[in-house]
């Protein structure tokens, strides 16, 4: 079970790279838990989650090779 994670904006600053591979997680909830353990700064929860380009609001089941994007809000204009 492999999940591809795309990090945008400030999230990529925290993870240090814009693409990550996370193994052995079955849901977006488990994924964020794993990420928060490695990158405690993510605990602020300041991003939205998209699974295969669909923005989700609640815990969602993941499948092998799913792509999960983490998008932070921007305010600049």
């Amino acid at each position: 079970m492999k999940i591809n994670v795309l990090a945008f904006g400030q999230i990529a600053d925290i993870t240090g790279k814009s693409e990550l591979e996370i193994f052995q997680v079955n849901s977006t909830g488990e994924l964020t838990q794993v990420l928060e353990k490695t990158y405690p700064q993510l605990k602020s929860g300041n991003f939205l989650i998209a699974v295969n380009k669909k923005i989700i609001q609640k815990n969602t089941e993941l499948h092998n090779e799913d792509t999960v994007a983490l998008l932070p809000p921007f305010s600049g204009g």
Binding site: Q10, N46, L48, S75, G76
Partner: peptide, 13 residues
Amino acid sequence: LFPQPPKPESVPS
């Protein structure tokens, strides 16, 4: 998209 605004110090301008 963003139901809750981010904490003021968390997003740089």
